[in-house]
Every structure is written in structure tokens, then in C-alpha cells.
Amino acid sequence: MRSVYAKEMLIYFSSPIFYAVSFIFLCVLGIFFYNDMAYMSMLASRIAQYQLSTGLGLDKIVLRPLFSDMSILLLFIVPIIAMRLYSEEKGNGTIELIFTYPITDLQVLLGKYLAGLSVIAILLGITTVLMLLAGIVVSPDWGLVFSSYLGLFLVSASFLAIGVFASSLTKNQIIAAASSLGIILAFWAVGWFSDVFTASAVAKFLGELGIMEHLDDFMKGMLNVKDAVFYLLFSLFFLFMTLRILESHTWRG
């Protein structure tokens, strides 16, 4: 597993895709961050001018919008990070080689999955600079920052599991990325139904299935055990499905 992980990490950092994706992600996020900070500054001077007492703080004006932007950016980026994991091997024909390795499918999968997670963790890690920058002006609630990052990491883990699954289906990386994006968007949209059909059992069920709904509490600074468990189980499900797909190669021939 370790050798698979090391190999995947090496490929990530030597491929232009990682740098291109990171560049776009950080650049767009930087612009959002600057906008939010400028808006806060404008509000702050207004409030001081009219001596209003509002319940507004850095959390509401900068952090929550920024983290929610981040989650949407990740939604588009994680499929791109995940797309090559199996598709590339399938395209190159090296997948047959993997099946002959003296390690199990599960070990290969975990190696690849953990490599993807590490890349996401590194990306999120870089964005903590923004928090430090905000901290120069107003000290953020570090507990809230921590829980938001935890939530973003967990939701990305779910996106990645979907991405790995889609990647195991096809040898075309573009199709892999597009279909994982499609699946993610479907699970996002499912959550909206709970707003339309209020208070029916179906709405409640769909609401629980919505992938973004479970981020809300994290971004408010709360650790709701059910949300964390949801993301773990969700990831587990797609990893399990990936294993089944890989397994099918042996009997489909």
C-alpha cells in the first residue's frame, strides 16, 4: 500500500494538472477572500460611523461565506484530482499489471485514495494562510476555523470517493471527471428537495442524503456527530462500490 501511495504522490507532484488546479483554486479563493475582507472593512467603518451595535462579526462576514465558497470550488476540483487515479491506468493498460501485483485490490485502492486525500489536505493547508492574514485584522474564532476545515476535509473525502468510483468505470479521464461531477451535483441537488416538500418523510430522507446539507453545522462551528458519520459512511460506500467494480474485471475477463 505504501508503495502505491508513494507512486501516486510522485505522479501528482510531477504532473502539470495538480499545479494548474491549485493555481486556479487558490487564485479564485484569493479574490473571494479579498472581496470579503474589503466588504468587512466597509461595514466596519459604517458601523463605527453610525455607532450601530450589530451582532456581526468576522465569522458571519468573512469566514462563513469564504468556507462555503471553498466547498463549492472543491466540488469542481476534487473530480479533477481524482479522475486519473484509475482511468489513467486503464488508458495506459497498466491496470492489468496492478491485478498481478502481490497486493490486494483494497490495498491498491487505499493507497490511491490516501494519496488523493493528501493532495486535498495540502491544498486546504495552503489556504490556512488566509486565516492568518484575517487574524492580523480581527482575531477569528479558531474553534470555528478548525471545525470548518474539518467539515471541508470530510466533504472532500466524500467527493474523492465518488471521483475514485467514477474513475474506475472508464478509461477516459474526461468522462471520469464529468461523471463524478454529475454524481456530486446530483447529491447536492437532492438536498434542495427538503426545502420544497416541507415536513414529509421523503423530504427528510432526501435532506439527510444531500451532501452539502451536512456541512452547515461544521461551518457554524459545531461538530455534529451525525454529519461526520455521514461523510465517513458515504465515502465508505463509494470505496466499496469501487472495489466491486475492480473485482468485476476478474470475472468479466
Binding site: M37, A38, M40, S41, M42, L43, A44, S45, I47, A48, T54, G55, L56, G57, L58, D59, K60, I61, L133, I136, V137, V138, S139, P140, D141
Partner: peptide, 14 residues
Amino acid sequence: ANHLAPLTPYQASL
């Protein structure tokens, strides 16, 4: 709530 603060020109460019 933690408060808001206006940016100084230096901070804004940072």
C-alpha cells in the same frame, strides 16, 4: 460576536 475592523491601507494591499 467578535468585532469588525476597518482595514488600514497597508492591510488592504496585504
